[in-house]
Amino acid sequence: MEAVHTFKWTGDEKAYLNVIHVEKLGPLSIGLYGGNTEAGASKNEDAVLAWCDPHGTWEFVMIFDAQSTIERAKFIIDIICKRKEKLLQLFTYPSHLVFHHTHMYLLSLFTDEKIIEESERIQEQTACLICLRKGKFVYWLSVGECFVYLFHPRLLQCDQGRLNKQQCYERIGRKNIFSAATPCFTSGVRELQEGTNHIVMTTDGIIECGERIFEDDYVLYQSLYSDDTLHVGDVLEKIEVWKGTDSATIIGWSVDIGHMDCICEQD
């Protein structure tokens, strides 16, 4: 099997305080910013794990926004990396099987008693967002306050952009949502539209800055998109000008879909 493109980073490795860093991984543009030290930023508790199929059939991305310590995010990344071979096998399944089986496998990991017991030895908590794009569909699993968007002109006309909502009291950690008798999380699958689709993932450091103008999906889209390309660095430059104190991570990529029936009918 041809090696997949891989990016793994945690904020304790390099915090990018007062620094905007943008890196490419296959179709992904990965933007990292640790916050402004003059405004009070002192560390970066975000993290990223990304895998891309060299042939462009799928992308798998995880982003984290940890609290107080990055150890929780590192623990989950380690769990996923140890099971990389199994996950890559799942990603070869056809679309009508891949998302269901990947979802059930991820839930089995997060709810495994041994993993929960080991997890509870680590202090603090983390938000976690997982996305898998294969073919003309995107799947996500979200706990906490990271966000995923699917941008396309047709969807924006329907006032659709962000796929999930902020969940302030759900975390993975010492208070672990997956240790509850009934775990709470957000997940779903969406079909991409004909033409160019833009998938974007962010931590809440993007939203909670600059009078929160990026709470408006269209404003975020306008700041990202120009010359038929996503520019994640342009968003981080605005965060830097606004002297954001929270670390901010944003990942975006574009997927072109051939002719298909329109999903969103206009009046």
Rank of each mutant, 00 (worst) to 15 (best):
C81M: 13
T92E: 14
K86M: 01
L87M: 15
L107A: 11
K74Q: 06
H103I: 06
I80S: 02
H103K: 15
T92P: 09
L106A: 02
K82F: 04
V98G: 05
K84I: 09
K86A: 00
K74S: 05
T92M: 10
L97S: 11
M104S: 15
L107S: 04
L106Q: 01
L107M: 14
T102Q: 06
L106T: 01
Y93S: 13
F75E: 15
A73G: 14
K74Y: 02
Y105T: 15
K82I: 03
T102A: 08
H101P: 06
T92Y: 07
S95F: 07
F99L: 12
M104Y: 07
Y105W: 10
L97Y: 06
R83G: 07
S95I: 14
F99D: 13
T102H: 04
A73H: 02
K86L: 03
L88H: 03
T92R: 09
Q89V: 06
T102K: 04
L107E: 00
S95P: 11
L106M: 15
H101W: 04
L87R: 02
T92Q: 14
I79N: 03
K74F: 02
Y105C: 02
Q89A: 07
K82G: 04
R83Y: 07
C81A: 05
L90D: 00
R83N: 15
K86P: 03
L107V: 09
M104T: 13
F91Y: 11
H103S: 11
C81L: 08
K82Y: 06
K82C: 05
L107F: 07
H96P: 11
Y93A: 12
H100A: 13
R83A: 06
F99T: 08
L88D: 06
S108D: 12
K86S: 02
V98C: 10
H101Q: 10
M104V: 13
L90P: 08
H100D: 12
M104F: 10
K84C: 06
E85S: 11
H100T: 14
Y93F: 14
A73Q: 06
A73V: 11
I80P: 04
T102D: 09
L90G: 00
K82D: 03
H96Q: 13
K74I: 15
H96L: 13
R72D: 05
